[in-house]
């Protein structure tokens, strides 16, 4: 068995005095898609920020392909193949589509190749290459954001709330793309509030509540318990 692509051990993080992560353990095996679910405020986004190097944890370790990256800078992680698509619209609104794509070449793939991949997957982006990203619809912006995941052939893809503020149909389309990326063998950690949608494409699922991972397992098992976690227990 090879080393897992991501291994998070007993990770803690805090905002000032407020502890947000209280010892998170999580593993993403090579080539697997793991969905991380949980209610708002469970610490999911903070976990993503820690893994991607945006936030320094207060304790614990993060191993990326066996290397401890707890203190690595986000730009260095991005250059060695960690692709993070953060919460919200993760494009530059005042740059054109083409310029957004150009910046994706920092991950090590030539710009021309990025253009080709993006326009092949999403022909709609080719039509709008000179348009400012901020003037496109939310779905189109997420397509643009996903182009980075597609083009850069990352070792690990971190997706944070891809669906935020998007119509269900568009969310489904985006997750089709995620499934396609997964087929190419990319390992993915995917944070999502729409449990069913995310579980459709994942091999494993983990549930986070109150700064800890409280359950892991097969998608089906986890789904059954999810509506309670998110919609509240029997009142």
């Amino acid at each position: 068995m090879s080393v897992p692509i991501l291994e998070v051990c007993d990770l803690t993080a805090a905002y000032g005095r407020i502890e947000v992560l209280r010892g998170v353990d999580l593993t993403v095996p090579r080539g697997a898609v793991v969905a991380l679910l949980g209610p708002n405020g469970a610490g999911k986004s903070t976990l993503v920020q820690c893994i991607s190097g945006q936030k320094e944890p207060t304790g614990g370790d993060i191993h990326l392909a066996g290397v401890n990256v707890r203190r690595a800078a986000p730009e260095d992680l991005a250059r060695v193949g960690l692709c993070t698509v953060p919460e919200g619209r993760s494009v530059f609104p005042n740059l054109t589509v083409e310029e957004n794509l150009q910046l994706m070449s920092y991950a090590g793939v030539p710009a021309a190749a990025v253009f080709e991949t993006a326009y092949t997957y999403f022909p709609r982006l080719a039509e709008r290459r000179k348009q400012l990203a901020g003037t496109m619809s939310g779905g189109e912006q997420q397509m643009l954001a996903m182009s980075r995941a597609l083009a850069s052939d990352p070792a690990l893809l971190l997706l944070d709330e891809l669906s935020m503020g998007l119509a269900p149909l568009i969310v489904e389309e985006l997750y089709d793309t995620v499934a396609r990326i997964a087929e190419t063998g990319v390992s993915i950690l995917c944070i999502e509030q729409f449990a069913r949608t995310a579980l459709r494409v994942s091999d494993y699922a983990a549930v986070m509540v109150g700064g800890r991972v409280v359950a892991t397992g097969e998608p089906d098992e986890v789904l059954e318990s999810m509506s309670d976690v998110i919609l509240g227990g029997a009142a």
């Binding site: 986000p74 730009e75 698509v85």
Partner: peptide, 22 residues
């Protein structure tokens, strides 16, 4: 690219870092 990155860092420097830019 560096010029585009300069404009991108106006929009959102944190995102630029996730892209691998400095």
């Amino acid at each position: 690219r560096i010029g585009t990155a300069m404009r991108a860092s106006v929009d959102n420097p944190d995102l630029l870092r996730l892209f691998g830019g400095k």
